[in-house]
């Protein structure tokens, strides 16, 4: 992490601490905000938060490791969470899960090489009456069919400001991503 980036992050964390209060109960709201913006919470951020809340950095690390929505390692800009509960399983989640893997070119637990999508299983998403269910970022998709996956991913690319694939042909290749800023990311 560059010094300049650290300074920006430091200022942001101070602002978060001022907003949520410099008390232990502010820890989760602060960490969730960092997670949302940076898609993970690095060691520098953990130490900075710890210093502001006057707790040991390892306390922060312990909390980050406990919650499945907080990550100590970098994740993609868009997190895709597929419900793995029994109701979604009975509704056919396996086929949908396979299609997401095919369209993203990654397996569950992985992040695309361009750093844009991460794919994980979630425990019950509370959509049992309309499974299979997916969370794409904060966007909920219920009763998902395999044929809809491509569109859902394209919507995510657009809505989250990720450049869409320009050529229909390359959309089928998980290994090629059109990126006008190629060389900068990953």
């Amino acid at each position: 992490m560059l010094i300049q980036e650290q300074r920006v992050l430091e200022a942001e964390i101070i602002a978060l601490a001022d907003k949520h209060g410099r008390k232990r109960s502010a820890l989760l709201p602060i960490l969730l905000a960092i997670q949302e913006k940076y898609h993970y919470i690095n060691k520098f951020a953990m130490q900075e938060v710890a210093a502001l809340l006057d707790i040991h950095p390892v306390e922060v690390y312990g909390v980050v490791r406990f919650y499945s929505f907080l990550h100590a390692e970098r994740r993609g800009s868009v997190m895709i969470r597929m419900c793995r509960s029994l109701s979604c399983d009975l509704a056919g989640k396996d086929a949908v899960a396979r299609q997401i893997e095919n369209d993203l070119g990654i397996k569950f637990g992985e992040t695309t090489a361009d750093g844009r999508f991460s794919l994980e299983y979630a425990q019950c998403l509370g959509q049992c009456d309309r499974g299979p269910a997916l969370l794409v970022g904060d966007q909920l998709h219920a009763q998902v069919k395999c044929s809809q996956i491509h569109t859902i991913l394209e919507q995510a690319r657009a809505a989250f400001g990720v450049y869409p694939l320009r050529h229909a042909g390359v959309a089928h290749s998980p290994h090629f991503h059109y990126d006008p800023m190629a060389g900068r990311a990953s």
């Binding site: 008390k23 232990r24 109960s25 502010a26 820890l27 989760l28 709201p29 960490l31 969730l32 809340l53 312990g62 909390v63 406990f66 919650y67 499945s68 929505f69 907080l70 979630a122 425990q123």
Partner: peptide, 24 residues
């Protein structure tokens, strides 16, 4: 107050731990 993906936090004392900024 937002949770962060932990089933056990539905248990009331774990929920309170989480509210206080601890592991649930």
């Amino acid at each position: 107050h937002m949770g962060a993906g932990a089933y056990v936090c539905g248990e009331e004392t774990a929920l309170i731990e989480s509210l206080e900024g601890h592991r649930g």
